[in-house]
Design a protein around this nucleic acid. Structure first.
Length: 202
DNA sequence: GGCCCGATACTCT
DNA sequence: GAGTATCGGGCCC
């Protein structure tokens, strides 16, 4: 039986949440259409002290969602064209989140493939959603999803429990794309990745 | 397979 | 006005 992850799951150490989300199933409901994928890559962004985290600038209109209750979605726009999806973590008032970097499509493949367009041609499903902006495009996630409560009854986006991933199948390393972020933040091993996503049972 | 680059608009200084 | 938690196409192996 599957259960929906509740707020207590997200209201923990961000590193623990990022690790434990691996293998869980992200579900996106669009009316009758169910889109879903197994989470296979995440990154942790933890507090104002973390110079890789948007909250380094403190409380602003953009970052206020990260200061709110755990279990909400923090969705932001970057590079002039891309949306990114995050799970808010930790206690209310402490700004932190887990960036979703990749999923393995399991439900609604036809819709996801169509949304990815030519970039999906001749590639297996795992390659349609192996980047933070790619999966947002495939799942139809944009600014309307910012601050959604993933733990509310009837939520359009939520996470279902699934088979946990063994430590032996997880690679931990530095976060991606923090070119101008100073050490030690740039190199902290706060990225969690399932080694062979395509081997996971869909 | 790899590297380089441009697209594009939002956030905070 | 500068910087950006990226992507895909073009090019060269």
């Amino acid at each position: 039986m599957t259960t929906i992850l509740q707020r207590s799951f997200f209201a923990r150490s961000t590193l623990q949440v990022a690790r434990d989300l691996l293998g869980m199933r992200l579900v996106r409901l669009e009316g009758e259409q169910r889109l879903a994928g197994l989470i296979v890559e995440t990154e942790a962004y933890v507090g104002e002290e973390d110079l890789g985290c948007h909250a380094r600038a403190g409380l602003t209109p953009r970052t206020q969602v990260m200061y709110g209750a755990a279990g909400h979605a923090y969705v932001y726009f970057t590079y002039g064209m891309h949306w990114m999806f995050n799970f808010v973590s930790e206690a209310e008032g402490f700004p932190a989140a887990v960036l979703l970097r990749a999923v393995l499509p399991t439900d609604g493949l036809d819709v996801m493939r169509r949304r990815r367009g030519r970039a999906a041609d001749s590639l297996p499903p795992a390659r349609w959603t192996d980047g933070p902006a790619k999966l947002c495009q495939a799942l139809g996630i944009d600014r309307r999803c910012n601050d959604l409560d993933l733990c509310a009854p009837g939520a359009e986006i939520f996470v279902e429990s699934a088979a946990p991933i063994l430590d032996a199948s997880v690679t931990i390393g530095p976060r991606v794309g923090l070119y101008t972020v100073p050490e030690p933040w740039k190199s902290l091993p706060w990225r969690f990745r399932v080694d062979n996503p395509s081997l996971l049972e869909a």
